[in-house]
């Protein structure tokens, strides 16, 4: 399971947009780099990020080699009721990451 960080506000207001911040530890290998022995390092990027809130899809992203290493994403969401916000991502090698945070509607 890949390492990452997820941040949502401690509490949110019903129907008011709040910011979700995601940071994923990943080299986002472009395929253009070479190692110390001159061997090409194969492309390996986080290609897919999927975010759900209380089980239904809220946001998704398709990333390319043009996204910086250790990708940072911040976007907005609204909630009608409290629920779990889940971020799932996977890279070219099929490795996966998952993070969850409780969104509390106060």
């Amino acid at each position: 399971m890949m390492n990452g960080r997820l941040q949502v506000p401690p509490s949110v207001k019903k129907g008011e947009p709040f910011e979700v911040r995601v940071l994923m530890q990943h080299p986002m290998e472009t395929g253009f780099r070479r190692d110390m022995n001159g061997k090409a390092i194969p492309t390996n990027i986080v290609n897919q990020v999927r975010v759900t809130l209380a089980g239904s899809e809220l946001f998704s992203a398709e990333l390319g080699t043009g996204l910086s290493a250790n990708p940072y994403l911040a976007f907005y969401a609204m909630a009608d009721a409290s629920g779990e916000l889940v971020v799932e991502w996977s890279d070219d090698r099929g490795e996966k990451g998952r993070m969850a945070a409780q969104v509390t509607v106060a």
């Binding site: 129907g15 947009p17 946001f59 976007f75 907005y76």
Partner: peptide, 15 residues
Amino acid sequence: LGARSGRAEISTRVR
């Protein structure tokens, strides 16, 4: 994104 995003605003870092 969609209506549930509430706001069409994204921050990221690019190469």
